[in-house]
Design a binder for these strands. Structure first.
Length: 476
RNA sequence: GCUUCUUUAGCUCAGUUGGUUAGAGCGGCGGACUGUUAAUCCGUAGGUCCUUGGUUCGAGCCCAAGAAGAAGCGCCA
């Protein structure tokens, strides 16, 4: 008999029909009620087992997370928790399980424990919801850009460019690591390496995306990104996914408009299409926070936070205004900040948190940063002191987006590269984009896992990617 | 990389001033149960107290080093 997906069944409620469902047992109560989930949606279907029709050997194997097929008639449920249920004629064990050895249990398990069992954690309610939403956000990214005439551009994962300046890189090599070939002066001879020169994993597709924007107008990248930083935080991964739109003929204001509209779209898409998963995640957090002092709880429940972000304009301030706000703040005057704030220094996490969580209580876009704390390719403003760079700051997770208008003036770009010791010969192709038919353009990078983290309310970024890579950890 | 905290049963944790045989809840296993919703009830097994070294008559507890994990910071998305 053809399998019916549980999400479809729960939606259509075909009472009186005979169906077959297949999935994993979430609970087996009273030797009678199977809560079955096949991943097609948040909700389980209840299957009622008739012990007189079902061999005892089969009933014994209906255990937690066993995989079963149930065939029977769909009826209106006598119980209170669900509209319909399946009266099982037959139960077939597709994949039994040994509960004495299976590490997962039908109870609360810590995220740290489940991270070690990443091959099973998607079977839990929390992680199945998280990963359905992760998919939804990825889909919404592509839909948003496609609907607006952007082209999806695949930028290289292995890069020969060493000058992107976005962070420490992972080396890619096929040389014998114990005995690499050496040059006459005793250094590793990368001419003999696979690509004939040193290569690394990409830290950003931006520079290549600019190539696309200078031909296709509006492009975006969405791919894996690698940073070999020794970052041990709940917001950093060594391997993560980044989205980088790049728009020709756009300035920094167009860039900020795009960033705000884009983030709001992603959140709206999940709110509209995955309410059950969101509600479960919200209840999970609310229960968890009951034991915390009020000050440590979220100011609003999860879905309310998401609606608030969608319904309100982000606050837009310049870096110079941000510094002034911080210097006029109570915590600053009381000496509560650990790091100094004066014009020219980078904002520390504590300062950003003050702006987002205390001062404005909503997402904040900070624009026009001092040139000395930003990258070489960002466009010099007329004041000669700041560049057209912007960061989008979110509560809890900090920087979600970093972007800028790019320096399109060849002489200015060369001057900035010289000032910041970026070798011109490595980026000659990048300079060519200014030499031949260049134009004003802008773009940004959005950390995919960070926005998934925000939408799901998960506190650690390692719990929103199936197989997290962090310093010292590359399991699975 | 820095600071702080944690590590005791399969999981989540308690463990008094250093003192005899290390506990609980949940889970597992055995049994009961034809309307359950984290089902419930009865019974039962289960321990390298992270590792190594030290102090002590005696260490889960004190000291040192190491390992693993977490939170915060820095770097950033």
């Amino acid at each position: 008999m053809k399998r019916t997906e549980i999400a479809t069944l729960l939606q259509n409620k075909p009472v009186g029909e005979k169906v077959t469902v297949k999935g994993w047992v979430r609970a087996f109560r009273s030797n009678r009620f199977i809560a079955l989930n096949d991943g097609t949606g948040f909700n389980n279907v209840q299957c009622v087992v008739d012990f007189e029709k079902t061999p005892e050997e089969v009933i014994k194997q209906i255990g937690f997370h066993a995989c079963v097929a149930v065939t029977g008639e769909v009826v209106e449920s006598q119980g209170a928790g669900q509209d319909i249920e399946i009266l099982a004629d037959t139960v077939e064990i597709l994949g039994g399980t040994d509960l004495e050895k299976y590490p997962l249990q039908p109870k609360k398990m810590s995220h740290e424990f489940l991270r070690e069992k990443a091959h099973f954690r998607m079977r839990t309610q929390t992680f199945s919801s998280v990963f359905r939403i992760r998919h939804a956000v990825a889909f919404a990214v592509n839909k948003y850009f496609n609907d607006r005439g952007f082209y999806y551009m695949h930028t290289p994962i292995i890069t020969g460019s060493d000058a992107e300046g976005a962070g420490e890189m992972f080396r890619v090599t096929t040389l014998n690591d114990a005995k690499p070939p050496l040059t006459e002066d005793g250094k590793v001879d990368y001419k003999q390496d696979f690509f004939g020169k040193p290569t690394n994993m990409t830290v950003s597709g931006q520079l290549q995306a600019e190539i696309g924007a200078m031909a296709l107008g509006k492009v975006y990248t969405f791919g894996p990104t690698f940073r070999a930083e020794n970052s041990n935080t709940s917001r950093h991964l060594a391997e993560f996914w980044m989205i980088e739109p790049e728009i020709a003929f756009g300035d920094i204001n167009d860039d900020m408009d795009l960033a705000e509209d884009f983030i709001k779209y992603l959140i709206s898409y999940v709110l509209e299409n995955y309410p059950d998963d969101l509600q479960f995640l919200e209840e999970r957090i609310t229960k968890l926070e009951r034991n915390l002092p009020t000050a440590d709880r979220r100011p609003m429940p999860l879905t309310e936070t998401l609606r608030f972000v969608v319904d309100n304009d982000f606050e837009r301030i310049t870096y110079t205004e941000a510094v002034r706000h911080i210097q006029n703040s109570k915590p600053y005057k009381k000496g509560k900040f650990e790091f100094p704030v004066e014009w020219g220094t980078d904002l520390a996490a504590e300062h950003e948190r003050y702006l987002v969580e205390k001062k404005f209580k909503k997402p904040v876009i900070v624009v026009d940063y001092p040139k000395d704390i930003k990258a070489f390719y960002m466009r010099m403003n007329d004041d000669g002191k700041t560049v057209a760079a912007m960061d989008v700051l979110f509560p809890g997770i900090g920087e979600v987006i970093g972007g800028s208008q790019r320096e399109e003036r060849l002489d200015m770009l060369k001057k900035r590269m010289a000032e910041m010791d970026v070798p011109e010969h490595e980026l000659d192709w990048y300079l060519d984009l200014r030499r031949f038919g260049g134009c004003p353009h802008a773009g940004f990078g959005l950390g995919f896992e960070r926005i998934v983290q925000f939408i799901t309310g998960m506190s650690n970024i390692r719990d929103v990617i199936p197989f997290p890579r962090t310093p010292g950890n590359a399991e699975f």
